[in-house]
Amino acid sequence: MNTLQWSGLLLLAVIAGAVVPFQSAINANLSRGLGHPLWATLASLLVSLLVLLPIILALRLPLPSLAFISKAPLWMWAGGVFGVCFVALAVMLLPKLGASGFVVLALTGQVMASMVLDHFGLFGLVERQLTLPRLVGALLVVAGVVLIQLSAVPGKVLVAGG
């Protein structure tokens, strides 16, 4: 993979992360209007389906293999469960924690879980051992998360040396 392709992937990953607070803030407002976070979660997922189906049809993607669907292990279907979990928790927590508070705490969970997934090569991922530099990098990210969250607490001021 050349540098331009790698840069494009990095940019797409940043965009994927950047849409999270927008999605969560919009869904939190939808939740207030619909009367419950789970209604907003359902609405969000239905809109996702309505957006995705025409794209699949426009690209003329072949139907998935029924043989695969019938034989796939149950864990392969858990992505949908995790998606509902993330969207519903974002809708409920973002108004209480703020956008930056929710995102930095969610990022902490993502970093920790990602290190475990990589270290053990779970779910078919390439194994990436937990080395000291990777651990220090993860801890620095988490430390940044803590600083961002603590500085957002009303009435709490972080002062060097005291």
Rank of each mutant, 00 (worst) to 15 (best):
Q110Y: 02
Q129Y: 05
L150Y: 14
A72P: 09
V116F: 05
V146L: 15
V104K: 01
P64C: 14
R128W: 02
G98I: 07
F120E: 03
R134Y: 04
V142R: 04
L130W: 07
A106D: 01
S151I: 10
A67W: 10
I69Y: 12
G98C: 09
A138M: 11
S65V: 11
T108W: 00
L66N: 11
V126H: 05
A88I: 00
V142T: 12
A58V: 05
S70K: 15
A58R: 11
V146Q: 12
L140G: 09
F68D: 13
R60C: 06
F120P: 00
L122Q: 04
L147Q: 14
P62W: 08
M76P: 02
G80H: 04
S70H: 15
G137C: 12
P154A: 10
L66F: 15
A72D: 10
L61Q: 14
A67D: 15
A58K: 10
F86V: 07
V145K: 04
V116L: 08
A78K: 00
S151G: 14
K71L: 08
P154Q: 13
V145S: 15
G144W: 09
V145H: 08
L140E: 10
S65M: 12
M115S: 04
H119Y: 03
V141I: 15
L130Q: 09
G98D: 07
G137N: 12
F102D: 00
V104D: 02
G109E: 03
A138S: 15
P73A: 06
G83S: 04
A143Q: 14
F82A: 04
K71M: 08
P64H: 12
V145I: 14
L61Y: 11
S151P: 09
V153T: 13
V157G: 04
A72G: 11
V111T: 03
L59F: 12
A143P: 11
L74S: 11
L94Y: 01
L117R: 00
H119P: 01
V116G: 03
L117C: 01
L61F: 11
L122Y: 05
A106Y: 02
F82E: 01
C85D: 02
L74M: 10
E127W: 00
L139I: 07
H119E: 02
P133F: 10
P133W: 09
T108R: 01
Q149V: 13
A72V: 11
L139W: 00
A113E: 02
L59A: 12
A90E: 02
V116I: 12
V146N: 10
V136K: 05
G144N: 10
G155H: 11
M92R: 06
A78M: 09
A113F: 04
P133R: 10
V116A: 07
P64Y: 09
R60G: 07
T131V: 09
R60M: 07
P64R: 13
A143K: 10
K96G: 03
M112L: 15
D118W: 00
R128F: 03
G98T: 06
A152T: 08
H119G: 01
P62N: 12
M115V: 06
M112F: 06
L125K: 08
V157F: 09
P154W: 11
L63I: 07
V84H: 01
L66G: 11
A58S: 10
K156Q: 11
L105D: 01
F68Y: 14
L147Y: 14
V146I: 15
F68K: 14
G98K: 05
W77L: 14
W77H: 07
R128T: 05
M92L: 12
F102W: 07
